[in-house]
């Protein structure tokens, strides 16, 4: 059996098992694939509902980018400013890593009110440790000889950072982003459920309140589809097209 045939068989078995559960447990408890698909069509054909996909997607991208930018600044500062390094290692990193997501979400409502600010804040605080730990370790192993080569050409440290250090960190930033993205999506749903009146998380909450289990399934299915498609069309393509350049072949 070929690879695509095996994959197709796996999907078919999953759908069949799902269908079986749906028939046994009933549509109010476990909607089968056909009922879920009908609900998905209802969402994607209704502009008022589709906008919530965009809202959540936008919050995820914003949150991940803010986490990355914040982590880059913090790690660079910690590497170069001795006093901040002590604070970072002893206080900032352990605290940020340990704060529970629910506590962050509840505090975000107090600080930012219901909406995008709170959801993005939840993503930033929870996802940033992924970048912090990877960048911290990554900076230890960057090729110092390349930095020296660049330093012999210019004294402009910002240019050296932009042209040499940042590209060297690209594989680390890429793998961290890949990992952060699916985590951020889950966090966005929790954040929207608790601290927002829009987005997929809020719509799942509304559907659950109205006992529309088919809509809960449909929104979850759409979220999964979003993550999988992003993984394939953004991450996999970037990896195939650009990341192989970073292999030294040594």
């Amino acid at each position: 059996m070929g690879r695509s045939a095996s994959l197709l068989a796996c999907y078919a078995i999953t759908v069949l098992v799902w269908y079986g559960f749906g028939r046994v447990m009933g549509p109010d408890i476990f909607p089968d694939p056909l009922i879920t698909l009908t609900a998905v069509v209802k969402i994607v054909t209704n502009p008022h509902l589709v906008k919530h996909l965009g809202i959540t997607g936008g919050r995820v991208v914003l949150g991940v980018l803010a986490s990355m930018a914040g982590a880059v600044v913090i790690v660079i500062l910690a590497r170069h400013v001795a006093a901040f390094r002590v604070y970072y290692l002893r206080v900032f990193y352990p605290v940020v890593r340990a704060i529970p997501t629910v506590a962050i979400a509840l505090l975000a409502i107090v600080w930012f009110g219901l909406g995008t600010g709170s959801v993005v804040f939840v993503i930033v605080v929870t996802v940033m440790p992924i970048y912090l730990v990877n960048l911290w370790e990554g900076l230890k192993v960057i090729d110092a000889t390349l930095v020296e080569m660049a330093a012999a050409l210019t004294s402009d440290r910002a240019r050296i950072f932009r042209k040499v250090i940042l590209p060297m960190l690209f594989p680390i930033l890429f793998s961290s982003t890949k990992l952060s993205f699916s985590v951020a999506f889950k966090l966005a749903l929790v954040g929207e459920l608790l601290a927002s009146t829009s987005g997929m998380g809020f719509m799942i909450y509304i559907a659950q309140q109205d006992l529309k289990t088919d809509m809960v399934f449909a929104w979850t299915f759409l979220m999964l589809a979003f993550v999988v498609l992003f993984e394939y069309f953004v991450f996999d393509v970037t990896e195939r097209k650009y990341l192989s350049r970073w292999e030294t072949g040594a």
Partner: peptide, 16 residues
């Protein structure tokens, strides 16, 4: 620095 160029012992090429 502007008057100098260096040929290094190892090539020090940017792999990307």
């Amino acid at each position: 620095k502007k008057k100098i160029s260096i040929v290094w012992q190892d090539p020090r090429l940017l792999p990307w």
